[in-house]
């Protein structure tokens, strides 16, 4: 049975997001691939052919588009597919060490799947620069601000069979008065009275950090 055979209403719902023209139909390519990958962890050749038939194009086109994007996999990934952002902002927060630690602890390299279902991948900036370093689980969500201790506990939980909920910390929030706060509750910035003097305090570029 083909993947979408018993999911006609899902297919219809996806197609309905786009115009009914052949061009519009083709727009469903990415959402359909995403459905398959979410279910199987990767997209196989028969799946590509299935998607091609659904949207009226060729397997070549599907493969061409699929291979363009880095999210889609053509090889099976583990039950816990962990992606580490390795771009500069995360690197400045130690993502290289995080990566090394992860691959050593799990004893896995990109492209492999461990017996206990781990696979790893280095990826580029995931928009978590303010909460770096980070891990992404199975295209499902992020673990942010991943310290060594947190990394270890995440691995332990996954090894024990279930991945903790992914999180979504908001680093800076605004209160009802319009004051900006850190998630920890620490107020940032200043009000009109205090701000200006604050920023004119001598803080020369060479004076280094405040910590």
């Amino acid at each position: 049975m083909l993947y979408f055979d018993d999911k006609q209403s899902l297919v219809a719902e996806i197609l309905a997001r786009y115009p009914s023209s052949p061009q519009g139909k083709r727009s469903a390519l990415m959402p359909l691939l995403r459905e398959i990958q979410n279910a199987h962890g990767f997209v196989s050749e028969p799946h590509m052919a299935e998607v091609a038939a659904l949207i009226g194009t060729t397997a070549t086109e599907v493969r061409s588009v699929l291979s363009f994007y880095s999210t889609y996999h053509t090889m099976p990934t583990g039950r816990f597919h962990l992606q580490v952002c390795s771009t500069l902002m995360c690197a400045l927060a130690g993502s290289d060490e995080l990566w090394d630690h992860l691959t050593e602890t799990l004893d896995v390299q990109p492209g492999e799947v461990t017996a206990d279902g781990f696979s790893v991948q280095r990826v580029e900036c995931l928009g978590s620069c303010g909460t770096a370093p980070m891990l992404q689980l199975n295209d499902e969500g992020y673990y942010e601000g991943v310290t060594r201790a947190r990394c270890d506990s995440l691995i332990a939980a996954m090894r024990a069979g279930s991945a903790p909920e992914t999180d979504h910390p908001v680093p800076v929030v605004v209160d009802a008065d319009g004051r900006q706060f850190l998630a920890t509750g620490e107020a940032v910035g200043a009000n009109t009275d205090s701000l200006y003097p604050l920023s004119t305090k001598p803080k020369s570029a060479s004076s280094g950090g405040s910590v």
């Binding site: 050749e45 590509m48 194009t57 060729t58 397997a59 070549t60 086109e61 599907v62 493969r63 061409s64 291979s67 363009f68």
Partner: peptide
């Protein structure tokens, strides 16, 4: 009017192939 040949992968890895 046949979509039988296309680029696969992207950037410096791009190559021509068919899946037909």
């Amino acid at each position: 009017g046949q979509e039988v040949l296309d680029f696969i992968e992207r950037g410096g890895h791009t190559f021509i192939d068919t899946a037909e």
